[in-house]
Design a protein around this nucleic acid. Structure first.
Ligand SMILES: NC(=O)c1ccc[n+]([C@@H]2O[C@H](COP(=O)([O-])OP(=O)(O)OC[C@H]3O[C@@H](n4cnc5c(N)ncnc54)[C@H](O)[C@@H]3O)[C@@H](O)[C@H]2O)c1
Ligand SMILES: NC(=O)c1ccc[n+]([C@@H]2O[C@H](COP(=O)([O-])OP(=O)(O)OC[C@H]3O[C@@H](n4cnc5c(N)ncnc54)[C@H](O)[C@@H]3O)[C@@H](O)[C@H]2O)c1
Lengths: 242, 242
DNA sequence: CCGTCTTTGTGCACGCGTTCACAAAGACAT
DNA sequence: ATGTCTTTGTGAACGCGTGCACAAAGACGG
């Protein structure tokens, strides 16, 4: 068990690289699993395997948070869970609204992993008058007219957009005008937002297209290898379209 | 109108940077919108704005595909749509299976944008015997027992996993054993796969945590600015947890 | 108290991605 | 044909992220 604990409290707290921030949730998930199994400490190597990253990268990532490890032993699981949670801002409660309660919005509303990390669905909002009042995942859907009031009454700063693409920019602008400063966008559109507002997007279609690219490349290489060709240009010639 | 068209057919076809590949679908979406409005040509600057990227980056990205632009004019929209589609492998049909038809899986099955780009939902698969035969989005759900047969009968190489996290690794292994070489994973787990298999993940929870981090940072900076502090360390002291 | 052995924290080098800035290409008018 | 004007394609510089490799820290046994 680790005894020495004169850890310095994270200098450089304002300089965590974006790539590191994006991995912290991954580490947190792996650590939470260890915590539930009552594992007291974990080495960078073990944790790296669990999170699917390089162990040197993991150690460097943690070094941005401060020196929380013990040489020869590893990292205290509970302590690290706490530190990462605090760094990510998960020790506080984040009310979120979901706008556009269709197929996807309803699935998101029903998603359990939402609430598990300090995120609380404060409201579900849809423009369809038919939906108003109907409960989805135990929460009554409210009409889009109420958007501004809901945001300000609940102090919402994070909004999720799952409306059709055509409505997304407009919804985005209303959210921002009402005080939202972080947006998670599921609609396949580029949202333009003022400085100071963060947007992250999730786009199924893009992910599939990236997979298709690699899939095609694999098939091409395979065919090339099978034919035992010499020339590196295995492409079909680029014929002009009609 | 562009007349000269002695475009060389993409040398370097085996060297497209990953970052570029990830942006091609974005360009394609913007170009498709232009195409629908019958816009004949577009400059790198205009297209860059539509896609939300830097115009120099866009030109460099396109340069990896070949010289498809015309100086002084821009790019031919239709031609570029075709070239990017071809490069991404969207000129062929990609049958995909979705495994785990719960809230999310059903939403994915209902998603129209799926089919729009050459992706065809070949089958919906779930382990729950209750669901077998029930149609979701017009496609009858099949039992997980049939997984291997479905994959091989349809020549499926892309699989989507939307099962609970606990089942994901096992489903992943079965998919791969049956011949799938690209996986889109919605379950919050790290999937371990052999070389040659591509995995992309979509994780709502991670995206929200990243947003929360920046949100907290904004709030901290604001408070600091308001208090007019000197010291750069605006953090609460790192107190040891109980 | 000292030696050994494990594991962290990080200096360093390298490669990828981004962006600037500009020469050259080519359309278009005269 | 020649000049002008727009826009591409890319060389070059820079910064960020990654991973190696190792010195130092510290636990633990004797
Ligand atoms: N379903 C999926 O799996 C999936 C996957 C990826 C992306 N998407 C994207 O997510 C979005 C939603 O998809 P979906 O399948 O749930 O569509 P959907 O049509 O089922 O739902 C859209 C909902 O948004 C509501 N809406 C429309 N305009 C609105 C506005 N101005 N304000 C508030 N609500 C409004 C509609 O009433 C409807 O309930 C789309 O942009 C889609 O492209 C969906
Ligand atoms: N719902 C969301 O918005 C959302 C968002 C992000 C991530 N996720 C993740 O996506 C996954 C699915 O979420 P959900 O809300 O649809 O859950 P869900 O419980 O509604 O659906 C899971 C489905 O998977 C099926 N299943 C279980 N084991 C299986 C197996 N071995 N083979 C085939 N099918 C199996 C179940 O029968 C069920 O129908 C979860 O891992 C969840 O964490 C969901």
């Amino acid at each position: 068990m680790a005894t020495g604990r004169n850890h310095r409290p994270a200098t450089r707290s304002r300089g965590i690289p974006e790539a590191t921030v994006a991995r912290l949730p991954l580490y947190l998930r792996a650590l939470t699993a260890l915590s539930e199994r009552s594992v007291p400490t974990v080495s960078s190597e073990e944790l790296a395997v669990a999170a699917g990253v390089n162990s040197a990268k993991l150690r460097k990532d943690f070094s941005y948070l401060g020196s929380y490890g013990t040489r020869g032993v590893g990292y205290d699981v509970e302590y690290l869970v706490y530190q990462i949670s605090r760094e990510l801002g998960l020790t506080q409660d984040w009310p979120v609204v979901i706008v556009g309660i269709g197929n996807l919005g309803a699935a998101l509303a029903n998603y359990g992993g939402f609430a598990s990390r300090g995120f609380r669905v404060a409201a579900l909002i849809d423009a369809d008058p038919e939906m108003a009042g109907k409960p989805v995942a135990g929460i009554p859907v409210q009409h889009a007219d109420q958007l501004e009031k809901i945001i300000s009454d609940n102090g919402v700063s994070i909004g999720v957009i799952s409306t059709p693409a055509g409505a997304a920019q407009q919804v985005c602008e209303r959210l921002i005008a009402a005080g939202v400063t972080s947006i998670l966008n599921f609609a396949p559109t580029v949202l333009s937002v003022p400085d100071g507002v963060d947007v992250r997007k999730v786009d199924l279609s893009i992910e599939l297209q990236i997979l298709a690219f690699h899939e095609q490349r694999k098939a091409g290489e395979e065919a090339e290898a099978a034919a035992g060709r010499k020339g590196p240009d295995g492409d079909m010639p680029a014929v002009m379209p009609a």
